[in-house]
Design a protein around this nucleic acid. Structure first.
Lengths: 146, 146
DNA sequence: AACCAACATTGTAATTATTACAAATAAGTT
DNA sequence: AACTTATTTGTAATAATTACAATGTTGGTT
């Protein structure tokens, strides 16, 4: 991802760019690991020693408000983020803690339940928890299958 | 709800009863407000001055492990709990912070996406966020409709 | 260029949810 | 009763997040 693409992405979402915002956004666009604020800070800090953790929090708040990223509350330990705002679900492996993307086939949208009268839905999240392939293999000591 | 029903509920879920566990379980069975650990503690503490917040946390952990309650991570501010373990979704009103139950018609189950090879799902959560009826009415100053 | 206002960033301190842990209590067993 | 095991309690530690005031930056205006 070149810097210009990140810049365009920010401006398209109504986010005034800055060095810090570009760094956070670019990290999210390049890493699909659903990082937490702290993980983003730790990754960027070595290259940007003056970066403040508060700025990372502020930026992530702004990005989600502007629809440039989504916030996941799948892991009770901390909130994490995803630059992929398309309609998809997430899977948390309770063994290794990693979050995986789960594609939704179109039928899932059809099945949306009806809301009570007067309720307006602004966001939908579908979260799964369980055991990912690698952790399942390690448990059964069939590591060769992974 | 009589105390004996709560007692039966606990033993049916393999939870050895105690005064504290009965109190927490009974609170959850009687209140469908999806309380947090702190809310449960604050509600029970006046009647049970020696109750410790740690016990509430320990009990809630035990109850979810034993399937007597479920843990919701819909609200990033804190985890909350529900004694209704049947298949249903939740709606968080981002205005008032209340969590509402959303019934799922059967079609929703059919639409479950397929997991990647080797992934095992142990829990599924469907969370909606938006504006509840009361908050929508207050916003438009049509309080009479609520 | 100097100035100014609006906005963004920084660092520290405060807040809050949750967990760790060791001592005290209660329950169950011989 | 003596003893073992499980539970509860209170305090202290941890960790995520937010509040806030000071500093720095930007873009427009004279």
């Amino acid at each position: 991802m070149e810097a210009s693409a990140t810049l365009r992405y920010l401006t398209e979402h109504g986010v005034k760019p800055s060095v810090q915002r570009l760094a956070v956004m670019e990290y999210l666009l390049e890493h699909h690991t659903h990082p937490s604020a702290d993980e983003i800070y730790s990754a960027l800090h070595p290259q940007m020693p003056t970066l403040s953790k508060t700025t990372v929090y502020n930026t992530l708040k702004l990005l989600t408000e502007q629809g440039a990223a989504i916030q996941l509350t799948i892991d009770e330990r901390n909130v994490c983020f995803d630059a992929d705002t398309s309609n998809h679900a997430h899977f948390l492996c309770t063994r290794c803690g990693r979050v995986f993307d789960i594609m939704l086939h179109n039928r899932a949208a059809d099945a949306a339940p009806e809301m009570p009268e007067g309720f307006t839905v602004e966001q939908t999240a579908i979260y799964f928890r369980g055991c990912c392939r690698e952790c399942a293999c390690q448990q059964h000591e069939h590591k060769a299958d992974c």
